[in-house]
Design a protein around this nucleic acid. Sequence first.
DNA 1: AGAGGTGGTG
DNA 2: CATGCACCACCTCT
Length: 611
Amino acid sequence: MELKFDPKDPKYEYIQDLKALDKALEELEKCRAIGVDVEATGLDAFNDILLTVQIGSPEKSYIIDVRDIDLKSCPRYKELLENPKVIKILQNGKFDYKYLKYQTGADITNIYDTMLAEGVLTAGLGSGYFSLEDMAMRYCDVQLNKSVRKQFENVANIKTKRFNKEQLVYAALDTLVLFPILDEQLLKLKKENLVNIAKLEFAATKVVAEMEYRGIRIDVEKWRGIIEDLKKKRDVHATNFYDTIRDFYQSNRIDLFGAKVPPININSQVQIMDLFNNRLHLGIPSTGDAILAMVQHPVAAMLRDYRKYEKLISAFGESLLEKVNKKTGRLHPEFNQMGAATGRFSCENPNLQQIPRISEEVPFRQCFIPAPGFKLVTADYSSMEMRILADLSGDEKFIKALKDGLDVHSYTASLMFGLEFSKDFKNKYPDKRQAAKTINFGLVYGMGPRSLAAQIGVTPEEGKEYMDRYFQLYPSIRSFLNKMAKDAVRNGWSQTPAGRKRWYKLPDPDDPDYKKKIGSIERQAKNHPIQGTNADATKYALVFLHDRVKKEGVEGGLTHTVHDEIVMEIRNDQAEDWSKIQCEEMCRAAELFLKKVPVAADVFIGDVWEH
DNA sequence: AGAGGTGGTG
DNA sequence: CATGCACCACCTCT
């Protein structure tokens, strides 16, 4: 590839005064697209220090030292970055977005994100994270020197120390390589018909950046109260456990203060296996909860009780509170747009998508609260995956049930077990409904008769019978799922109606695990269009909602999303009206793909996160 | 440092 | 032959 810069000696300008900045901006304003990158002392846009902002044309990079120049008092800079007509090319743009918003006062628009583009082009094959170093090497044979980035992190005398040539070259290349990478990616995106999905991801990345920036408030005292309560309960179960097993161990050690020392580490899977198999002779294959539930010995129950509390304390305890940002006093979880191969978001630091559902004992979700004067508006799609399955398979019975507003699990059960359908089916035949629900969901995951039988507690033969009966009821569902599986194995990829692709590493025919691997791909491919369409709809909804907030002049914004649920923080007096708009926009997004079945979303307005 | 086990969510 | 999808956090053990 012909590069417009020399990787050994790139053209750049180190900008340290307003006059030079003005001249640079004049050049940059002529560009249709500019490359943007920042260097900072760390990853936290609120607490770490922004050092440089690099803005580049395809040929030249301008490195603005923000210790010398206050970009907040430079409207021309802000106008450039906020100009919707200029494409801003970034690598993992939401990282830079937050720095630029907080420390330079600019909200970038019209982002092309090289990392997201790569994610869209290789979904299912990689981790979802692609470093600029890898891409620069792969696409344009340019070696970026990673170790130089470290130098930015430990700048002693941060106020005064100037950058060396090596650092400046590195900073310059970071914007220059973006252009050839974009050129190559664009060819591939067009070839794979992924332009629309890439556009969706690019539109979403600004929205996600704003969502991360806003974050969410947490009631720390209430959270601590729950944890303390859980710790007390956990300790009771731990003591019971230790007292019961102590006789099976030789040493009854006493510590310096006369307290009994636990004979084993209760958290050690290895030591628990030793206890159950070598000392209690119970012969368990693993220590998972499903196994322990079947073990008659009282120690098993004690361990299960202990684990229930220990899990909550370790995963959601003090460690989550440590993530409260010092500057904002709020949690700012990170949402990875390509976190799942299906197109779903993943979430980390902390993962708000795995906070336990609300219960008497563990009301964790009630600790998530809006700012004073605001409400949390929580809306989730109703039976979204069932609706998608109905729509994509085109199954007439299933579609009619949804059109008639029936509970699909009850309806399925009534057909499968020859029972009369009624409004109170759920109460009359809860077991039958649960069995049908297991099948409905299991199929979306490509489940087989054996695990179905295990789940609903019948023999494998009966499990097979249930599945046969189910598919006789809904013949189009069987043919749809089979087609998805077959196409994926033939093509090496599967696709959602929105055009999102997921690739598969097809095994070598000589692979000893060939059938196992093909089976796995088939199950993933059956699930992909369903889970993926849900993700596509939610992403469109996020973009719609963000635009609508601006259009309506509503004060507030997005706080987080959990796959089929979107939570927003909206000013008290506007929350009621907004809740209707939020449902409307979510439905409008889903209706882009679902034409045969109605879409519905339920909404809640509250002073806590609940639904 | 990374793998494996366990368990929380949709 | 094996046989339910998609994640992340925490723990122990190597």
